[in-house]
Design a protein around this nucleic acid. Sequence first.
DNA 1: CGCCAGGAACCTC
DNA 2: GAGGTTCATGGC
Length: 295
Amino acid sequence: VNLLRLKPWQSPFDLDLTLSCGQIFGWKKVSDSWSGVHNEKILIIKQNEDEISYSGCSSDELICFLGLDHDPDKIFRSISEHIINYTGNCEDQYFLNCYNFSKGIRILKQDPWECLISFICSANSNVPTISKRIILLTEKLGEERRDKCNTFPTPGKLSSSSEKEVRECLTGYRAPYLIRSALFIRDNPEFLKEIVTMEYSEAKTALMTLSGVGPKVADCILLFAYARFEVVPVDVRIRRIITLRYLNNSEKQNMTSTKDYSYDEIANFCRDYFGPYAGYAQQYFYASWSIFPPD
DNA sequence: CGCCAGGAACCTC
DNA sequence: GAGGTTCATGGC
């Protein structure tokens, strides 16, 4: 077991929120210790205030994975400045509430292949169900590691699995998407690495050529595996928050005529309003959903 | 039972 | 391009 002591500039950091806020699936907490898969390895991580104990990877890998190289204060100052610029010196109490609840979150830097599979499984589902699917995929099609934990299935393994086998992991209609995308990655092993060099729109278009990857899933992969903090995945929560609290907040009492905004309208508003860390702001909102519902 | 959830594919117009 | 339908699964 290794030890990592957080420096003052790295706080606040909240391991529980970071691993349970819906950016990664299949991680389990047993007696204060989190365990899960990252980059074909089984990691075990435990936080005690500014003390992180861990095993399964190097300290550099842990810092990169957990986003501990991000400066929370710098992120907050950047977002705040952009809000002030946009509103003309008005503070945003709703954002501040959400931020203060969830400011210990870090955007992870997941393995792109594992993130791809995870978010294909996420379509039209919820976090507990998605986690079940990921755990089943690792148990049935992954490779066994220590502590009876398994890795993700490799592209080769997943692409040569039958639809029946993949459906047995509760993936439903997403099973053929998973197999097709695995086949493509098996035959184009550099594809996910080339995404790193691309501009946002090019990278998003490239990811969307994969089966089961649409605008939302592509954005999740870019934010959670490639550290593209300007990317804003728009799900039901973000759509409602932005629509109700930001785009539709004019003094209209008749809420019957609320406009429907497109995916890009909502995402682009967030980038204009929150700036280059809009993806972080998005995650603060997502994580605060039940504590500060928008309506 | 119906409705919803980190949606995408497929179709029509 | 914008709008509808369909697709499994689990929780409530």
